[in-house]
Design a protein around this nucleic acid. Structure first.
Lengths: 239, 239
DNA sequence: GAGTGGTCTAGACCACGCA
DNA sequence: GCGTGGTCTAGACCACTCT
């Protein structure tokens, strides 16, 4: 029986370990990962479980599978795998992402004409709002505004976020796990403010992502509006 | 034993049937799909197989699953699920997509500085090139240029494509199935030509997608460069 | 032919939502 | 308490790739 570790499913543990190995360079791009049967023995799991982990890595764009050959580590060519779930922090890797909090978490009313339809419960409670500017290798790439329902999140506004992942904070202090979500994409001209953040001329095209992320708390969704500067880094996804 | 049908895997058959039912309005948005156990009985399959089909539909954005409740049919709000694989034609539905061939398939050299790295085999053979303009509900939304390796595709250039899906044609006449792929996204200003196609002012932001699609033929990839007018329709994805 | 991933079965136990 | 989806086992057979 595989060793018990908290409550994280086995396939997810394997997925995270392999992803970390790839990011750490244990497996280099073009390398063959151990075969599914070898991974079964290594982690003491059965094939469907190991396959579940590998399928998740394919979705994140870290590997590609080839029938009869094996799982090959993918190059992620100057692109950022933000289109899948893993969260910006883990999609980019180690020390390459820097975050500045532009507006510290504060309680506000939900905006009128919000980008997604809100449930009655969400509307009833207020909303915690924050803004961030995020740099990839010193280049400003993401400006995001975030809306979190103010439901049972004690002391959230006084917590430090600088250089931490929002998802990590929610998981560690509030046991909130982001499970998945949906997103809408558009190309829009940068307005004055965004142009300044990105050091781009006004009206320069930027990519606009509106996302709704569901969590393990029923009815508790996190909303983000993300502006992406795609001058130097493109977004990258797998399908 | 489930009835044998060609060589399409069972999970894919179920996936396609359920997707068609959703597009046809048999299940309306917000409806609960039959439970996994019910689907097992209906199609005479086991749960992992049915789950495989449902997971694929989640990835395509057609349904969302809720632990303890069931699978709920998703609304796809004025957005186009082109970010997943299903292909533009099936992502949009019935008669809403119209296609004009701007450049009929013709054999050309691969362009220099191609958007993706080509294998030696691909470089050796020529490439079939075509351009299309696609309308969603009468609005020009996609302008795409496509590059297909000219490997064993007899009479391809003389086939009619108008109002047909490229993927369908490849599957029916050449037994080529698109399996998956990767894509890069950027926001760029429309150039003169694209502005005219989309009836947009020049320099208006458009979304640019560069995709590489792998197929069931090893080493045979299809490449597309797609410009999207996101004024009226946004792109939509699930993660 | 040996090894790989792709598909599938037939069970099991658990956590969650709801009545 | 019941039905739901989430995870997992321990096998099986097939198609594919490489040598």
């Amino acid at each position: 029986m595989p060793f018990e570790t908290n409550k994280i499913p086995h396939y997810k543990r394997v997925q995270e370990m392999l992803r970390q190995h790839i990011l750490d360079g244990v497996y280099l791009e073009g390398d063959l990962l151990p075969s599914e049967n070898e991974l079964c023995k290594m982690y003491n799991l059965t094939r469907p479980t190991v396959r579940h982990a590998l399928d998740a890595l394919v979705n994140e764009g870290f590997i590609a599978k080839h029938h009869g050959k094996g799982s090959i580590v993918h190059q992620i060519p100057n692109g950022i795998g933000i289109l899948s779930i893993s969260g910006t922090t883990s999609a980019i890797g180690k020390g390459n992402l820097n975050t500045i909090i532009l507006v510290k978490p504060r309680i506000i009313q939900w905006p009128d004409n919000f980008m997604f339809l809100l449930s009655d419960m969400e509307k009833e409670f207020g909303c915690i709002y924050m803004e961030r500017l995020r740099y990839v290798n010193k280049i400003p790439v993401f400006y995001d505004t975030n809306y979190i329902p103010n439901i049972n999140l004690p002391r959230f506004c006084s917590r430090s976020l600088e250089s931490k992942s929002l998802f990590d904070l929610l998981r560690k202090h509030y046991q909130i796990e982001v499970k998945g979500g949906e997103q809408k994409l558009r190309a829009i001209p940068a307005n004055e403010k965004i142009g300044q953040y990105f050091i781009l001329p006004k009206a320069k095209p930027v990519l606009h992502l509106e996302r709704k992320m569901s969590t393990n708390r029923p009815g508790f969704n996190i909303y983000s509006s993300i502006y992406c500067n795609t001058e130097s880094y493109c977004l990258y996804g797998v399908f």
